[in-house]
């Protein structure tokens, strides 16, 4: 049976400690100032303070980022619903970035791909929870398989009222559910899929995947990627070579597995 991974977030438990953001960055070697997940403060309310809303890629059922991808690098994993990026096909063109209503995608400065949350594919494959879930000191995030009626997430979804944070014009059917009374609700922007890509994909969509996957186009994409990528691009926190000979390999995520298909 196919899985359907999702998350329920009780944002009333969030204390804005940012542990989930840092844990994610360390797990996936995302340099500082680039984020696969976030904590979004709600508006200041007198008497109530600030409400904090954690989030990450919503792993949408109708992913506009997939629509926007010209090479087929971004796709939905049919076995579990997770939206993934195939690094071999991604040319970091960035079309998917404005196509996401949640701003969940960014150009990775060292890898020349567009990066995003994949629910810690590598970790969940080994039966662990995503890093953000595991590290949360207040257990604000519940992760699991919605297709399994006995899972914690299914039970919570059944027992408690939830809302999804969506843009009214482009409801992408996100797989992140918030327990009621979360705030803010109105921040996702309208998905902006480049017109050219939309037309192109509408015309050729049935064949595009096959073509990309099986013919020389994929080879072309990979070649192009190599041409574009800069082997010397380095970030302060990445692959530093210096007087520090005994550099440890901690934080090099053994859990961080990129898609291998």
């Amino acid at each position: 049976m196919n899985k359907r991974y999702a998350m329920v977030i009780d944002s009333s438990r969030c204390i804005n400690c940012l542990a989930c953001v840092v844990a994610c960055q360390l797990t996936h070697q995302v340099p500082a100032n680039f984020k696969r997940n976030w904590i979004r403060p709600g508006p200041w309310e007198f008497g109530a303070g600030v409400h904090y809303q954690p989030g990450n890629c919503m792993q949408c059922e109708r992913p506009t980022c997939v629509d926007a991808c010209p090479t087929g690098a971004t796709y939905q994993d049919e076995t579990n619903g997770i939206i993934r990026v195939n690094p071999k096909l991604c040319i970091a063109c960035g079309s998917c970035i404005p196509a996401c209503p949640y701003g969940a995608r960014f150009r990775h400065p060292g890898k020349r791909i567009v990066d995003k949350c994949d629910f810690c594919q590598g970790r969940i494959g080994k039966g662990r929870s995503p890093a953000c879930v595991e590290t949360c000191p207040t257990r604000a995030r519940i992760f699991g398989n919605m297709a399994d009626a006995a899972s914690e997430i299914s039970r919570v979804l059944k027992a408690r009222p939830t809302v999804r944070v969506i843009n009214k014009k482009t409801d992408t059917e996100p797989a992140i559910y918030y327990l009621e009374k979360t705030s803010p609700l109105d921040w996702p922007v309208e998905a902006n899929v480049p017109e050219a890509i939309r037309l192109w994909r509408d015309l050729f969509n049935p064949i595009v995947k096959a073509v990309v996957g099986m013919t020389g186009l994929a080879v072309l994409v990979m070649l192009g990627k190599q041409l574009f990528s800069d082997p010397n691009s380095e970030h302060r926190d990445q692959g530093h070579t210096g007087p520090n000979e005994a550099k440890q390999e901690m934080g090099k995520g053994p859990d961080d597995e990129t898609p291998n298909d």
Partner: peptide
């Protein structure tokens, strides 16, 4: 968590 980075800091 910052200790991971600090331990490996150049």
């Amino acid at each position: 968590q910052s200790l991971v980075e600090l331990t490996n800091s150049p």
